[in-house]
Structure formats: structure tokens, C-alpha cells
Design a binder for these strands. Structure first.
Lengths: 178, 178
DNA sequence: CGGTTGATGTCATGTGATGACATCAACGCT
DNA sequence: AGCGTTGATGTCATCACATGACATCAACCG
């Protein structure tokens, strides 16, 4: 992340990154599937914690509540270091390739959540809908958390966004409500 | 798409693709930013139609209704040729790089929708929330449309999914409703 | 001490992507 | 007809990402 921040993602060559870490480029590619992945390796561990929280949620929780509980854990973990998230996000926002990878990681969370919901007996398309929606809300909350004041926690921001989602759907989609 | 379907995305070299089109690889890269983009060039035009529909929606429509109206147009356009969508999706699903690109296209729709909503006077985070949620619902509807029976239209599937979203949020997130 | 294993390095290679420059056809103008 | 401009395409050179094949070396174990 140092090099990506210093000279930009595209300018930083894999050889340089590996060099700074005291390795060769070949070794870099043994640890990371590609040049981007070095910034996203942590996402997988985060996703695992998320899934633990999902399975731990009460079986009686409605789908979106279970998803919310899972995302809460992610929010707690990520929310612990806002400065780091801001640095990292600055690097990602500056490059389209990195944004693509981030979307992929979030999509994998969504898929995992939907799988988890189905294992809890939630039918399709409810499971996918709850998972996709939950991640969408998380994405918005995360951005607002980074943009907003430091005192506001990510967890709180996430809860707010979930509330606002309810308001949004209650107001109506103009379909089926007449 | 022929070559990608025949031998897989990774096996098809740009030189071959260009060759089949009677061009050189250099020319290919003048028309498409990268090897993937050739499959997604149409998305931009689709996004423009979507935005036209958004601005055409009644000013009194609540945010999610306006987004729904915009996505309706997309659903009509895409829904016109299910066979094509299935072929295309088969190619995309078979390769991670292509899936990444599709996610960014959808993300760009989401960004455009949020912008459009803000121009209509919708505040943040409502605008982003409505846009992200709408696209999330569209994504689910699209997948279900491809998987389901041919008689079911994409527009109908999208409406169903929007209804189910309301059910989902009404059931509660377990936060703020006690 | 010899052999196995895992991590790393070296080398070769293919492909995606891009800049610099050349070519050529179409077109408008005199 | 002849000329110059413009846009599309081709050629060439080059770089960086990515990966397979093989070599090396240290740690560890029986």
C-alpha cells in the first residue's frame, strides 16, 4: 500500500513492490493471484467472520435481520481503524482496476450471505435479495462513514442506513402499491 | 462473443478476435479499451436509456419509484432477447475477469442513478441508497429471469423482486423496530 | 548424515496494452 | 485533375503482468 499510495497503483511495478518487501516478483505471485490482490487479501478473513456471525444469529431472525447481524460484525472490525480505511480507500478510488476488485470482493460476500441464508431455510429469491440489499446498504454506509465526522462509528452509520432503507421502501416503489 | 463461447475467454487471444473481424489487434484496442470491453460496450447505451427514463419519471415519484421506472426501461430492452442474454451470461459466468467488468458496469449504473436522483433534489444518503438497492434488485431479477421459464418476462420478474424487497424490509431488520 | 519438504530464486515465454510513426482511402476545394 | 486534410488502419517497438519449468537452499526429521 505504501508504493501504491506514493506513486499510484499503475506506476508501481510488481518488481518494485516485491523488491521493497525483499522478495522477487515471482514470489509475489505465489502469495497473491495478481497485482491487485495484495490490497484485498484481508477481505477473505473478514468474510469468514461475517459468516460466523450469520450462522450465530438467532434462527428466528428474519432474513434481513440475520444479514444485518452479520454485517454488524464486519462493521465492528473495519470500524476499528478509520484512518487505515481512509488511506486504503484513497488508493482504491484512484484506480479503476482496484475498484473492480473491490466490487468482486463485495459480490463474494453477497454470494456467501445468500448461501448462508439458504442453509437457514430461506428460499430464493428472498435469500439473494436480502444478501444483495444488505451489502448494498453496507456499501453506502461505509462511504458515508469515511466521508462523515470521525466520532460517528461505522456500526451506527450502518444502522442508520438500514433504517433509511426501510423508509425508502415504505415510501413505495410505485409498483404494486397503487 | 463467438470466440469467447467457442474456446473460452482466456484461450481467445485478441489477435484471433481481431483477425476474425478482419482487423489487427492494434485496431481492436482503438475500439475497445481492453479485451473484456468488447462484451460490455452495449451497456453504456443501455445506461443512457435508463437515465432518460429516470429524468422522464414524474417529479413527485418517490426515489425508489423513479429508480424502478428507470430500471423498467432497461428490463424492457434487455428482456427483448432472452436467448442472447443467456448466451452472453454463459460466457461471463465462465470467467472471473468478465464478472468483474460486469460488476463495474452495474456500479456505474448505480452511480448514474444516484446522480440523477440528486439532480431531482433527493438528498444523500437516500439517493445512493435508492440507486444501490434498485440495482441490487435488478441484478437478482435478471438472474431469476435467466433461470426461470421463458414465458416470464424480465419486467414482470423485476416487479416481483421489488415487491419482495418491500416484504423483506417490512419483516424487519431487527434494528430500530425493537 | 542423508533425504524430504517448503519456500524462494532464475529463466523463458506468452499475452495484454500502448506510444510512435507510416500508409491509404475518402473527401472537399481550387 | 491535382492537392491537402482528415480519419481509420497497419506496422513496429516496448513494457509490464502472469505463469510454467526447473534450480537452489535451509529447516527439519529419522
Amino acid at each position: 500500500m505504501e508504493l501504491y499510495a506514493e506513486r499510484g497503483y499503475e506506476q508501481a511495478t510488481v518488481a518494485e513492490i516485491a523488491d521493497r518487501a525483499g522478495l522477487t516478483a515471482r514470489t509475489f505471485f505465489r502469495y497473491f493471484a495478481d497485482k491487485r490482490e495484495v490490497l484485498f487479501a484481508g477481505s477473505d478473513a473478514l468474510g469468514e467472520q461475517m459468516m460466523l456471525a450469520l450462522t450465530a444469529a438467532a434462527a428466528t431472525d428474519p432474513p434481513l435481520a440475520a444479514v444485518a447481524a452479520a454485517l454488524d460484525v464486519v462493521a465492528e472490525l473495519i470500524g476499528a481503524d478509520r484512518a487505515y480505511s481512509r488511506r486504503r480507500q484513497a488508493v482504491i478510488v484512484a484506480n479503476a482496476d482496484l475498484q473492480e476488485r473491490e466490487l468482486t470482493k463485495l459480490a463474494s460476500w453477497s454470494r456467501a450471505l445468500a448461501d448462508g441464508l439458504r442453509r437457514r431455510g430461506v428460499e430464493e429469491p428472498t435469500a439473494s435479495l436480502a444478501a444483495e440489499t444488505g451489502v448494498a446498504v453496507f456499501r453506502v454506509a461505509f462511504e458515508r462513514w469515511l466521508a462523515g465526522p470521525a466520532r460517528r462509528t461505522l456500526v451506527d452509520t450502518l444502522h442508520d442506513s438500514l433504517d433509511q432503507l426501510r423508509t425508502l421502501t415504505d415510501t413505495g416503489t410505485g409498483i404494486g402499491t397503487g
